[in-house]
Structures are given as C-alpha cells and as structure tokens.
Amino acid sequence: MKHIKNIYSVLFFLLLAIVCGCSKTGDSFYPDGQYHTVSDVVQYCSGSCDSENDWEGNDIRVKGHIRNRANDGIMNTYFAGSYFYLEDIRNGFFMEIRVVASKGDIFDRITQSIPADIFYITGKAVAVEVDDGENCEKGVIIELDNIDNILLNAE
C-alpha cells in the first residue's frame, strides 16, 4: 500500500509541475519586427471591440501564400475588389490584404507568381469590427499601398 501512495504522490507532483510550467503566457510579438506568419497575425491582432491595441494603425509584417492563387476566377474577383487573401498553408488561417494604391503593379506581381511562392508583405494594420448583436470582435486587415512592400520568397 505504501508503494501505491508513493506512486500517486510522484505522479501528482509531476503533473502539478507540468501544469505550472505550461501556464506561461508572455508573448514577445513585435508587429513591425520580423515577418510574422498569417496565423500569428490573425490571433495577435484580435480581441474584443472595447480593447485598444498596439498594432492598430501601425505597420505590420506578414508572410504567407496567396489564397486560391491557381483559380483565375477568384483572382479576377480579387482584382475587381482591390484585395486578396494571404493564407497560412499549414493550418488554413487567412487574412485580407487590401490594396489601396499601386493596384496595377501589385496585381501584376501576384499574377506573375506561382501558387507555391511565399509573399512577404509590409502594410498598415487596420482594425475591423464584426458585431453579431451579442458579441463584438475586432480583427485585422492590412492596407498595402506600395509595390516595394511586397517581396517574394525572401526575408
């Protein structure tokens, strides 16, 4: 019986130590530092509508693939609407990149790329609010205004 108590004690403290070790929450995320994945940007730049955030209105760097790049119909829709989606191909998260200037040059660069190309984009993070009547959530889109703020396959 003594053995059993010892086993339980060891496992209990082991699990306790693990739980304590897993509860760290300090993220070191600098929006205008290195290029971030789409997943990280989508999660970091979110929250309730009441919150005020360090990223709003500031430059942010993000990297990812053009969503549906191989679909010409969707690419035409992107061009007509002056936007495109950047996707994280690892888990499917995506975000809107709104083209606010240099539309022709930017879409030329996109159409010259292949689906496997990784885009590195610097733009202004703009908060958008989604209110379903019960909850109001804040998300992010990136405004892109310069062809020089797009790089392909290089950091």
């Binding site: 693990i18 760290k24 929450t25 993220d27 070191s28 994945t37 997943s39 990280d40 999660q43 970091y44």
Partner: peptide, 17 residues
C-alpha cells in the same frame, strides 16, 4: 499537448496549447 517552443513555427503561446 503543449508544443515545444519554436519561434519559426509560432510566436504565440496560444497556438502551442
């Protein structure tokens, strides 16, 4: 599952859980 830290994979704690 608590994923090991890998800043190239994700910079956020949220995704590691």
């Amino acid at each position: 599952i608590y994923l090991d830290e890998d800043k190239h994979f994700t910079e956020l704690e949220y995704y590691r859980n």
